[in-house]
């Protein structure tokens, strides 16, 4: 079982539609505001526990597939704000209608310079999640490993296409806070992370393309 976002290896999506060699970071102003709102609202723990990824993966599958990327962010943000009681659906719908009817209306502003400055630092500063907590790695480079066929607890960083497949440990990345085993409300426990190589033949069988391998951190 896996959720609809877990699409690695699925076929039939057709050719990639956009190949622009350069494109604007945000295609329309609302995309940038949505991106900024999402990050700036983390101070209010709108999507905790879990954060953005589980919120997006938890969208209705039809919404997930039909919405564009920042539309998913918008939907996840809205869902979190409603769930936490920051907003009511009535006031949000009413305000949306009011603004759709009066597209020239300016958005009000509230500024918080100390927060802005702290935030500006975060954009450019390292937040190294690397932790060494006395955990000894179980595997070494060259070891053959088979991925467990496990059901994730909520959010998982294990793509479905790897379950029960056998690969080879390539590198050990040390101990990280990995979100794979995080039950709701609990900080991700530190885990050793390995880079594992899977041959395309092992993953895709007779239909595999020649001379290719997939590398995944787990």
């Amino acid at each position: 079982m896996s959720r609809v976002h877990d699409i690695g290896g699925k076929s039939g999506f057709g050719p990639i539609r956009s190949h622009s060699k350069e494109e604007s970071t945000f295609h329309e102003p609302w995309e940038g505001r949505t991106f900024g709102m999402m990050l700036a609202m983390t101070r209010h723990a709108v999507l905790e526990p879990g954060g953005l990824r589980p919120a997006i993966e938890g969208l209705d599958p039809e919404d997930y597939l039909s919405l564009g990327y920042y539309q998913r962010w918008l939907k996840a943000l809205e869902t979190g704000l409603l769930a936490k009681g920051f907003l009511s659906i009535e006031e949000l719908d009413a305000k949306t209608q009011e603004l759709a009817d009066n597209p020239g209306t300016e958005v009000p502003r509230w500024e918080d310079p100390p927060f802005r400055e702290r935030f500006q630092g975060i954009i450019y500063s390292h937040n190294d999640p690397h932790k060494e907590e006395g955990i000894t790695p179980s595997f070494q480079a060259g070891d053959s490993v088979t991925v467990l066929n496990v059901e994730p607890i909520g959010h998982s960083r294990l793509p479905d296409y790897l379950k029960s497949k056998t690969g080879t440990i390539v590198r050990y990345w040390g101990v990280h806070h990995f979100y794979d085993t995080q039950p709701a409300g609990v900080e991700a426990p530190p885990q050793p992370i390995y880079n594992v190589r899977f041959s395309s033949d092992a993953l895709w069988g007779a239909g595999a393309e020649g001379n290719s391998n997939v590398y995944v951190d787990m």
Binding site: V107, E111, F115
Partner: peptide
């Protein structure tokens, strides 16, 4: 929709526009 969220969060003092 994004504009409505922006407006309401600012009005409630939850969202710093400058951030």
């Amino acid at each position: 929709r994004a504009k409505a969220l922006d407006s309401l969060l600012v009005e409630k003092g939850l969202l710093a526009s400058d951030a």
